[in-house]
Write a protein that binds this DNA or RNA. Structure first.
Length: 490
RNA sequence: GGCGGCGUAGCCAAGUGGCUAAGGCGACGGUCUGCAAAACCGUUAUUCCCCGGUUCGAAUCCGGGCGCCGCCUCCA
């Protein structure tokens, strides 16, 4: 398979060739643990989750590293506001992160290093930079000399003159040059700090990612990911620090996901226009959120609206219902071995090409939107087969259904959807609807039997009255040959 | 101001030189049904922001407009 990956460094798609055949090392910048995660964090997490799932699916042995920044200005400020320690705050927010990610079905990374547990590695890297003349100590701080690294700006497409124009000299900083950035910050009174050759202090934000990524993946590794907003200055600084220290290329492929916007504007903490993952999940199924996040190419902006989540929910419902119906057909006790019609055989053959199509789409710079298109085509095809099976039953449908469902599940694992059985999914949706309706199961069943009695007597007025009143409460009735079924207003 | 991206149906969204412009949501008509619902079938972009150009051929390449967004400061 020819995997093509858009590399921010080259500004184009290029063939993916890992350093070691069959193996991929990938590092993704995780969160700064000081607050609840919002949909933007969910996008980054889900995008790289799917990338990792896909790489594994096509046979790569992947080492996935995602860090936690657990010491930083924002953490210190927030901890002070709340009157708790930075450690307590970080622990709490990391717990929240795991709650959100577990709910979203985002797999754990293989290694999840924290900055505060890698102080020695960070100090060693800074010392290496000082020794090579790329960094200098100044009043307890250590800074990186940007001008000593001529390739600075290679990732973000900037040059030093442009950067100088925008650079500000902040009073109180001890930099020799406004372009320089901090590797180590001396401790202010009351701040958490660690011993270092330059006195008590703490690491700057950028250096931790260089130290931790190289520790676990080597001095040159395959993929480094993160949100597009990290490209400058964070990733630019990582390149400078790492390559200055090692003299080697740091990362081969830089992969950046686009933002989640809301009413066309970037969702961010600073604008205050964010919606937390927790809030979304209190209203929508986690897989609906995944579907929404994967509905557009990962590099493009993605606009959030409640409507978009409702659409994703409808689409997800359709997938689960299709599998549910297929399972039901497969479990029907049919003796007759009526041969399957030609068009059914063709449709089944079509469904079986799904994996291949999805893998092709994903191999083209992880085109989840295209891949999902194929997935939905297969869902419709499956429904078509179910329709045929219901019209002219045959025992031969059982194996066919099982094969089709297996194909769908195999692909849905890449997206991280359909992780529940359709029975679980539908039961949960129904129970949610029931509790929202304010009725007990007994009350509902009483109404249903009353309606069935009315229908038996062809009292359509009464029957429709009951159906309408339930519909207003979010419960939909379906009169099927095997009796009346109720379900959530899916 | 510098750098980068985007503009495809009612909405969301693939497609970057040539098969009928994927797919989702919605809407409408049909099959089914007592009527519905679900599902299926059909319809919903002769055309891809506008104007020029290149080409046998362009949504796709080039030039020029218009509009929107992001980065340049912490941000996934």
């Amino acid at each position: 398979m020819n995997l093509m990956v858009y590399n921010t460094l080259k500004r184009k798609k290029e063939p993916f060739e890992p350093i070691n055949e069959g193996q991929v090392g990938i590092y993704v910048c995780g969160i700064t643990a000081y607050d609840r995660c919002h949909i933007g964090h969910a996008r980054s997490a889900v995008v790289f989750d799917v990338i990792v799932r896909f790489l594994r699916k096509i046979g790569y042995r992947v080492t996935f590293v995602r860090n936690f920044t657990d010491i930083d200005d924002k953490i210190i400020n927030r901890a002070n506001e709340e009157g708790i320690s930075t450690k307590e705050l970080a622990e709490r927010e990391i717990d929240h992160f795991y709650q959100d990610m577990d709910a979203l079905g985002v797999l754990r990374a293989d290694i999840e290093p924290r900055a505060t547990e890698h102080i020695a590695d960070i100090i060693a890297l800074i010392e290496r930079l000082i020794k090579k003349g790329f960094a200098y100590e100044s009043g307890g701080d250590v800074y990186f000399s940007v001008r000593k690294f001529p390739r600075y700006g290679m990732l973000s497409g900037r040059n030093l003159e442009e950067l100088m124009a925008g650079a500000r000299i902040v009073p109180g900083e001890k930099k020799a040059d406004p372009l320089d950035f901090a590797l180590w910050k001396s401790a202010k009174p009351g701040e958490p700090s660690w011993e270092s050759p330059w006195g008590l202090g703490r690491p700057g934000w950028h250096i931790e990612c260089s130290a931790m990524s190289m520790k676990y993946l080597g001095e040159t590794f395959d993929i480094h990911g993160g949100g597009l907003d990290l490209a400058f200055p964070h990733h630019e600084n990582e390149i400078a620090q790492s390559e200055a220290a090692t003299g080697k290329q740091f990362v081969r492929y830089w992969v950046h996901n686009g933002f989640v916007t809301i009413k066309g504007e970037k969702m961010s903490k600073s604008l205050g226009n964010f919606i937390t993952i927790k809030d979304i999940l209190s209203q929508y199924h986690p897989e609906a959120l995944r579907l929404f996040l994967l509905s557009k190419h990962y590099r493009s902006p993605l606009d959030y609206s409640p409507e978009s989540l409702r659409e994703a929910t409808s689409a997800l419902d359709r997938c689960y219902k299709a599998v549910y119906e297929a399972n039901e057909v497969a479990s029907m006790a049919i003796k007759k071995q009526r041969p399957l019609p030609e068009h059914v055989k063709e449709t089944v053959a079509f469904i079986k090409t799904l994996s291949e199509k999805v893998e092709m789409a994903m191999a083209d710079d992880f085109n989840t939107a295209k891949a999902l298109g194929s997935f939905f085509e297969a869902v419709r095809s499956l429904n078509r087969v179910v329709e045929s099976a219901r019209k002219k039953p045959s025992a031969l449908y059982k194996d066919v259904m099982d094969e089709c469902v297996k194909e769908l599940f195999s692909v849905s694992k890449i997206f991280g959807i359909l992780s529940q059985t359709p029975e679980e999914y539908i039961a949960k949706r129904n129970m949610d609807a029931l509790s929202a309706s304010g009725l007990s199961l007994d009350e509902l069943e009483t109404l249903l039997s009353e309606r069935n009695e009315a229908r038996r007597q062809k009292d359509w007025k009464r029957a429709d009255e009951i159906r309408d009143s339930l519909s207003k409460k979010g419960i939909i009735l379906k009169d099927t040959p095997s009796g009346t079924k109720w379900s959530a207003d899916l």
